[in-house]
Nucleic acid binder design. Sequence first.
DNA 1: CTGAAAGCGCTAACAA
DNA 2: TTGTTAGCGCTTTCAG
Lengths: 342, 342
Amino acid sequence: MPPYLPPEAHRPLTLRDVSEASGVSEMTVSRVLRNRADVSPATRERVIAAAKMLGYVPNKIAGALASQRVNLVGVVIPSLSNMVFPEVLGGISAALEDSGLQPVFGATDYKADREENVLYEMLSWRPSGMIVAGLEHTDVARAMLANAGIPIVEIMDIDGEPVDSMVGISHKRAGREMAETILNAGYRKIGFLGSKMPDDHRARKRLEGFSEALQAAGLELAEVEHYAGGSSLAKGREMTASILSRRPDLDFLYYSNDMIGAGGLLYCLDKGLDVPGKIGLAGFNGLELLDGFRLRLATTDACRREIGLRAAEIVAGKNSDGVIGSKHIELSPIVNRGDTIR
Amino acid sequence: MPPYLPPEAHRPLTLRDVSEASGVSEMTVSRVLRNRADVSPATRERVIAAAKMLGYVPNKIAGALASQRVNLVGVVIPSLSNMVFPEVLGGISAALEDSGLQPVFGATDYKADREENVLYEMLSWRPSGMIVAGLEHTDVARAMLANAGIPIVEIMDIDGEPVDSMVGISHKRAGREMAETILNAGYRKIGFLGSKMPDDHRARKRLEGFSEALQAAGLELAEVEHYAGGSSLAKGREMTASILSRRPDLDFLYYSNDMIGAGGLLYCLDKGLDVPGKIGLAGFNGLELLDGFRLRLATTDACRREIGLRAAEIVAGKNSDGVIGSKHIELSPIVNRGDTIR
DNA sequence: CTGAAAGCGCTAACAA
DNA sequence: TTGTTAGCGCTTTCAG
């Protein structure tokens, strides 16, 4: 309930100002402003009128210190510009909608030391919970999280040991299942295109699962193409041109994400290659972007929105069952063959 | 400087704990932790060692209340999933990097009442400054901003009256300049494809400028196609199919953003239409995405990153000139003809 | 260079 | 239903 046209205040107003303007004690004003039931309607109205007239905005800093409660949930992700994360954030926001909690976002740029810093900053505001992407953190970061005394939910990935709760998919399994799909379709000379490994643990795990499945079938990756920096259609084109010039005999290209995969698809279509007959393609994530192309790129849906929803529910304490304590939730990545696997 | 392996604390630690562990007064501990110079090296080391050992994380709530200073800058934008905003946020983060200030993001979903709420929530944390997308707000929202007693920077748009400072481009001018470019290229039967107007003031202003320039040339829009909801390639395709089925004679399509424009471009290419000979296309924003297509979509660069940079500099007080007070900064949108205007 | 005292603006807990 | 009294954990100010 935001206030109304304020007059000419330049020192931030306090409860005391509202108290004086309404002739009611600070304590009662405080009660009204927090929507507590134990105030008479008459008093309530007078207070609300005074607060609106003055344009009073409560000071949550003082409130939080006094009550030892903060309605903030820290959310730490690698990047805001990677199209993968907005959907997770959307899920979080939706689930927190009427819990009284508010998400606060921070980005790490895929750097462990930046993550440590972001966590430190956030925890110093004493949030009610934290949602953190990934299971890999520095020891210091893990220790901070473990000792914060609040619910911690690590998301996106479940291949590892969480500090507290986790919600995500197994990226090893996602890689494995895509490999099996590809092999079943009869492709045999398979190339992989992805980011430099150390940065992105989830892409690394997908590749591990993928490779294991190939080995189980007596195969291995025929060629690998790495890149650094952000993903883009242009990068996908470029990498695809490069790997195919070295190995024109490849019959499948597995990309570490949909953006570069879509770039590769555009390249193949422009070159008139026979997709999926002569060459198949697959990405990862299930990006909405893919719906716009003539052929739909095969991909794995990473359940991003649901991950956000479930994580936020844990933080908000909306556990359908009555169990207290940490939850480990594995969602199932879904392979979508699209039009680029025959 | 995050702490180190903590032991078994479950009640959040206070300065007092560090004070006792190090045998130094709380006051001196506080000085060390704030990196103040007036502490002897010996004392400093003891304090830091104790803090690390305990895994102490300062309580910024108490600190902010006592010092009346908060190192937060509120940033309010319509949407995190619209690819337009990450770049603005990147600029803001970069400019704030070593200012000691930290951005906090909030999204409004293009709704005035949600904006009012987000502003109210943010202001109640008494941030050091606010950066808000757009110039259109409810009266209540304007009043809150005006009375917060902190730097307010409205960004993206400069066609209107700011509460305090503003940094952006003129969308009317952007629309006008694109129209002139299109007319100079000889196109005459021009269609517009964009979102429902009331939601998006900047798209509306672009259309106004665009229409004015057409009128100045004795023309008007031949056809308009509206949509609701988010932008996507698929939506762009669909809208393009629809408008062209009604008006196959159109020779130019102006899209309100690059995402639907790119979808339209894909549609035209797939249909084998002669772009830019028989039909020209243009979007708006200068999205990196466009670099991946066979033909590069014409667009207008909205200077998003620089807007973020400049806005953050104003909030951080890094005004190159010595002037205090509000700044009005107009950046120049740059038309990029790409390959889709002949 | 270090310490002691006095709040910051609000709310929990109790009293009236 | 309303008011009073103590702090919340830190920093400011001022003394030593």
